[in-house]
Design a binder for these strands. Structure first.
Length: 572
RNA sequence: GGACCUGUGGUGCAGCUCGGAGUGCACGCCGGCCUGUCAAGCCGGAGGUCGCGGGUUCAAAUCCCGUCAGGUCCGCCA
């Protein structure tokens, strides 16, 4: 039916007789006997010169047979990849007529999100969306090649899984055969892939759909896609090497340029320097420690466990109301307060007298020296508990300095040595930072009982430009360590058995040391495409309220279906 | 569960602060003209529950309350 793509015709094709199929992107009619029709397919558009009368309207579906030829002198269009050629001598067959589209099929105008999603099939015709879908396909293909090359085999795991009460809220699927019982859709294939390690699969991967019934965000949909991988007899470094290879291959396939090797940073370092576990390395404004410099200060708030600052280049011109709102922002983020200072001409500090009055000239000079402040800069200081001080300044750094997603280099970083527990719950028990099968750092095993919050884990995140792409860990394969971790988490042997019995049971039959990783392909592709929202790289996404505006899902089930499933709906 | 932004012919916007006739711009659509355009051009025309409901007022797109939808964020996401 077709023997050429619209967007691929070039001067070298001149003379070719081609048959093209596509949609009418635009039509320029010059009287009864000449019209220029820009025909669009997946690859782009090409100008077709149509003689004679035709009623060709926007988005009509055509088959055009004609001859590729160089455009007449002076009529080439340098804005179009196909702009040097046109298809002349055309015979046109209308394959389908079309109503005018609900919004223009062009990247020039951004239509309302709700209209785009309702008519997603039209939205996806736009060049940008076609490019995003194609980019995603290249990324997927590159990932598969990289994993296969490294000896991983793809295994599919069940979508109808069993409830696991830990972690994210799960989507429930009622069982028809056993009314009142439910499957759940997997929030990730975590346990399944560990079982595959016990099975001797050794190196598993899957481009897996994961489902979590949590509120949606710009970087979160109910269902999302991960490269899920697990390997036996590996160290943390082996896992990083496998995943780095897949990610760098994917980036190269997407952009044509292979990024440099992925750097590593400890979690403690990331917190100290960037105030977050997902640092955006595209810009500076690192946190500066001033605890020592201000330890003897007369300003009482600075005699705190930690005093840190960020330097905002050129921020000295921010107005008083903006500075006040920064103070409010810092308090809302949990800081006791925020002190701002300007670096004045000559290098001294100026700012609110209530603070500066209590800081000596030597201390002011030390602050300027430590921060590298230049005249015109703004310094923002927070004092308090170490963790809070860092995270508040880390957030302000992002608020004030972060470039838009499509800007700058792609800075990948492995964040390693996460703490095993991320805090204390209401009952005074440590909370697992990753999941309860994460192997503690071998040097910290002795601290499990005495100082659990100080225990590092063999878990790691992959971060790109401030987005968490994914995380992984070396898993516990030894029953004795697992029971100590469960015990630290306050999970009794009985609870462990009822929640994860089938996994623990499997481990009794010979579990290899293993570890793995999973990263979000939606997020990776969005960043590679320069998109701020993962909806732009998903063919049929949901709205923030979880609706599919195209199909109308979710919908009520009819009474008969409900009865078959043994369900009754309680009206609120 | 909460905060904020947005909602005006098919599309994108302006009008809203300071209430006074559905007023305006661009695109699209329909009809006419037009043989080298490419965001074609020129002429004419149609098209509106100002998201929805209530309130204030002589009078509401505009002010107030509620509600719905879309978005951004907090909580949530082991």
């Amino acid at each position: 039916m077709r023997d050429a793509w619209c967007g691929q015709l070039r001067a070298a094709d001149a003379g070719r007789r081609v048959r093209l199929c596509g949609w009418v992107a635009r039509r320029r009619q010059h009287g009864e006997h000449l019209a220029f029709v820009d025909l669009r397919d997946r690859t782009g558009t090409v100008q077709c010169v149509v003689d004679g009368a035709h009623d060709l309207r926007s988005e009509y579906v055509l088959a055009v047979t004609g001859t590729v030829r160089a455009r007449p002198e002076g009529t080439a269009n340098p804005n179009l990849p196909t702009g040097e050629v046109e298809v002349g001598d055309c015979s046109v067959e209308i394959l389908a007529q079309a109503e005018p589209p609900p919004f223009p099929v062009t990247d020039r105008v951004e239509a309302d999100e709700a209209v785009r999603l309702r008519y997603r099939y039209v939205d996806l015709r736009r060049e940008r969306m076609q490019a995003n879908l194609a980019l995603r396909a290249r990324v997927n293909a590159a990932i598969r090649r990289a994993m296969e090359r490294q000896g991983f085999i793809e295994v599919e795991t069940p979508l109808l899984w069993t409830p696991t009460p830990e972690g994210a809220r799960e989507f429930a699927v009622p069982s028809r055969m056993q009314p009142g019982s439910f499957y759940v859709l997997p929030q990730s294939p975590q346990i399944a892939k560990q079982l595959l390690m016990v099975s001797g699969v050794d190196r598993y991967y899957q481009i897996a759909r994961c489902l979590r019934d949590e509120d949606l965000r710009a970087d979160r949909q109910f269902e999302f896609t991960q490269l899920d991988a697990e390997a036996s007899f590996v160290t943390q470094e082996d896992v990083h090497r496998f995943i780095s290879e897949a990610v760098l291959d994917a980036a190269e396939a997407a952009t044509g340029v292979r990024p440099p090797p992925i750097e590593k940073m400890t979690w403690a370092d990331a917190l100290d320097r960037y105030g977050t576990d997902k640092p955006d390395l595209r810009f500076g404004m690192e946190l500066v420690d001033l605890t020592k410099q201000l330890a003897a200060s007369e300003f009482r708030a600075f005699r705190a466990p930690a005093v840190k600052a960020i330097r905002v280049p050129g921020g000295g011109q921010l107005g008083r109301s903006r500075l006040d709102s920064l103070v409010e922002r810092a308090k809302a983020l949990g800081a006791p307060g925020l002190v701002w200072m300007r670096v004045a001409e000559g290098g001294d500090l100026d700012g609110p007298g209530a603070v500066l009055r209590h800081i000596g000239a030597g201390e002011r000079a030390a602050v300027v020296a430590a921060t590298g402040g230049e005249p015109g800069d703004l310094l923002l200081l927070v004092a308090g508990e170490h963790r809070t001080t860092c995270t508040v300044l880390g957030q302000l750094r992002v608020d004030l300095g972060r470039p838009p997603v499509w800007e700058g280099p792609h800075r990948y970083v492995w964040v390693v040595d996460f703490p095993l527990f991320e805090g204390i719950d209401d009952e005074g028990r440590p909370v697992a930072a990753h999941h309860p099968f994460t192997m503690p750092h071998p040097d910290d095993l002795d601290l499990l009982e005495s100082d659990p919050l100080a225990v590092r884990s063999q878990s790691y995140d992959l971060v790109l430009n401030g987005w968490e792409l994914g995380s992984g860990s070396i898993r516990i394969h030894r029953a004795d360590i697992q029971s100590r971790v469960f015990s630290a988490l306050g999970i009794s042997a009985e609870q462990a058995e009822s929640r994860f019995g089938f996994l623990l049971g499997a481990f009794r039959y010979g579990a290899p040391p293993h570890g793995g990783f999973a990263f979000g392909i939606d997020r990776l592709v969005a960043l590679l495409a320069g998109e701020e929202n993962i909806r732009e790289v998903i063919a049929f996404p949901k709205t923030q309220s979880g609706a599919d505006l195209m199909t109308g899902a979710p919908k009520a089930l009819d009474a008969r279906s409900l009865a078959e499933l043994g369900l009754a709906i309680r009206r609120q």
